[in-house]
Design a protein around this nucleic acid. Structure first.
Lengths: 157, 157
DNA sequence: CACGGCGGTTCACAGGGCCGAAACAAGCGG
DNA sequence: CCGCTTGTTTCGGCCCTGTGAACCGCCGTG
């Protein structure tokens, strides 16, 4: 997982994109700008001009926070507890859930990712989420339902 | 919730205590010291000498992470204690209570938000507030009644 | 003091809808 | 032939919402 660097407030738009994608980022705050107030643990900032050492430290902290999150690569889903292999379809579903880790991924997006050419059945998603839950349990992940909205992927308590 | 300030690395011991107590803290890093690598969201640091504005911003961010006014997004209500999913109707009610967090939201406004086309029954609001109370308890929120006036949403004591 | 009204709280119940779980079937590759 | 992946159906249960009713504390009134 990489950490994105961007200028603040110049690249305000890019910040919003990265935030949406849950991408760790370090804001380089211009000398005369006021720093952002953020509660997002995937975001930090540093005042310019900054020592190289300080930038490095903040980047490293962001990276460490990020590796606490699960990662998906080549159909393998990893957490601190281990890994499981995912079939193609369910990997695509998890991909969406991951980009919104800890937040709601709406049914719409999940369906689009899983079945780009239209959903075959009204019930398939539910069934596959059931199967995913079974698979994810051993690596301490769980999927919580938000009725009429979507699903949240998060660490098991 | 307050944020503790301390010097780093001079007050190393105190930092450990605060960490143990999960007390939000801001480390003031001496000019020639190397910054700490932390993943704890209740900790942040700033390089000395620092602008007053920057210290203020970091303190404020730490405070928000700790007390965290609840936030409502996609039918999910979040506090520092966790989150619960809300059904559509109750989400609309909470939306009003949130805009007046800590102050009285009058019945009128709540009714209008919950039932834009007129309230079906004189009792519904009370019932749903009862249900909301149950739901909000696990995330340390409560709803207090102000007779003849309305309701106050606030952190549980 | 007894009484009743008002506002609010809590409970039980019912209809409708969404979701979860299981079981089966089909296809595919090893 | 067997196991894995994916789709389909069915059934049951739980959630959401509304409704009625019992109950309670507060307060004014006779």
């Amino acid at each position: 997982m990489t950490v994105e660097l961007l200028h603040w407030p110049r690249e305000r738009g890019r910040r919003a994109e990265l935030q949406e994608a849950n991408q760790p980022r370090l804001l380089l705050v211009e000398a005369d700008a006021s720093p952002p107030l953020t509660v997002d643990p995937a975001e930090d900032w540093v005042r310019l001009p900054a020592k190289h050492r300080d930038v490095q430290a903040r980047v490293e902290s962001l990276r460490r926070r990020a590796v606490a999150e699960p990662s998906l690569e080549d159909g393998v889903l990893r957490t601190a507890s281990g890994w499981v292999s995912l079939p193609e379809l369910e990997a695509r579903i998890v991909e969406v859930l991951l980009t919104r880790f800890g937040r709601v991924a709406d049914r719409q997006s999940i369906l689009a990712a899983g079945w780009p050419n239209g959903t075959p059945n009204r019930n398939v998603l539910d069934v596959h989420l059931h199967r995913l839950r079974r698979r994810l349990h051993p690596i301490d992940l769980r999927i919580r339902t938000v009725r009429k909205r979507g699903y949240v992927l998060e660490p098991a308590p």
